[in-house]
Design a protein around this nucleic acid. Structure first.
Lengths: 159, 159
DNA sequence: TATGAATCATTCGAGAATCGAACAATGTGG
DNA sequence: CCACATTGTTCGATTCTCGAATGATTCATA
């Protein structure tokens, strides 16, 4: 049966997760800062690459973000020529989002930064340990109903 | 030698960490919300319990937070009778911080909430997996020079 | 077909949060 | 005695964030 340190151990894991998560997010933000991107921008870029032609409303629903926030993020990316708003002839209310070639190019650099970031973050582990960690984290993520590839940071804060 | 999926796998771990970290932090904030505390308040409470009589400046240095932010947090806690500012006769510039009995009482509830939160977060793992996860996370935390028990969320954002 | 309701993108103002530069009080060293 | 550092605090300015409007468009339905 479980011993008396279980509660403590679980709490320690939870704190380590919060601590390392914040650290990982901050380090990643540093990595893409030279690209003049925030993590929020990078997430939009990635999602538009995965679902070309999606609407901003769909994006907001997927991310759990406010539509008005998506507007400003897409504004930034469009102004820099990384993303396109195309009118959809079938439903002229919505804007179909597409990456430009510059956007695709920059996303490649974001991916490279993410891999470099991941390698640096996990450099203390050997490949087997890293796979083991990935599996354990995947278990928790699935159990907690986290959507793969969706960072909760977009979600509006409840009060 | 490492195969070509290494970079991808490491990036996936980094993203999972950021994702789960944000999730864990949000869930913990929900847990202590009924106690009218934010995670930042709870951290101050815990640190004052560990280092009774510490000054606010020392607190700010330990947390990497702005002194002015510590002031407002301590203000809140003092106003609720959870913490005391005692004048130090030896150096009357600084305020020695101490928990009141109500503060100690509330910290107990915070700890209970943290354990309950940890148990819920890691319920998908058996005890052995949980210990394994704790060890792996501890490796990374040590390698990345994270201070035990200090959440990076206090640190002022660089720009 | 006509008309009210719903959806999409966007704007905008109010409120909150955050920073860092001041400031007074106190201590330290010359 | 004087200059300088430290502690705690205040405060104004900047930035962030939310959600309620708005206009354009589409849908539902009578």
């Amino acid at each position: 049966m479980a011993d008396s340190t279980d509660g403590h151990s679980a709490a320690a894991v939870a704190f380590l997760l919060a601590q390392l998560g914040e650290h990982a997010a901050a380090k990643f933000a540093e990595r893409i800062h030279p690209l003049q991107l925030t993590p929020a921008h990078a997430g939009i870029l990635r999602l538009v690459a995965v679902q070309p032609g999606c609407s901003q409303q769909a994006l907001a629903r997927t991310l759990g973000a406010l539509p008005s926030k998506v507007v400003t993020l897409v504004d930034d990316l469009q102004q820099r020529g990384l993303i396109e708003r195309r009118r959809n002839p079938d439903d002229r209310r919505l804007h179909a989002l597409h990456l430009t070639t510059a956007g695709t190019e920059l996303l490649r650099k974001v991916r490279a930064a993410a891999e470099s970031h991941g390698a640096d973050l996990t450099r203390a582990l050997d490949p087997q340990q890293r796979d083991n960690l990935a599996a354990l984290l995947g278990c928790i993520a699935a159990d907690q109903h986290l959507h793969p590839g969706i960072h909760p940071g977009y979600q509006r804060l409840r009060r």
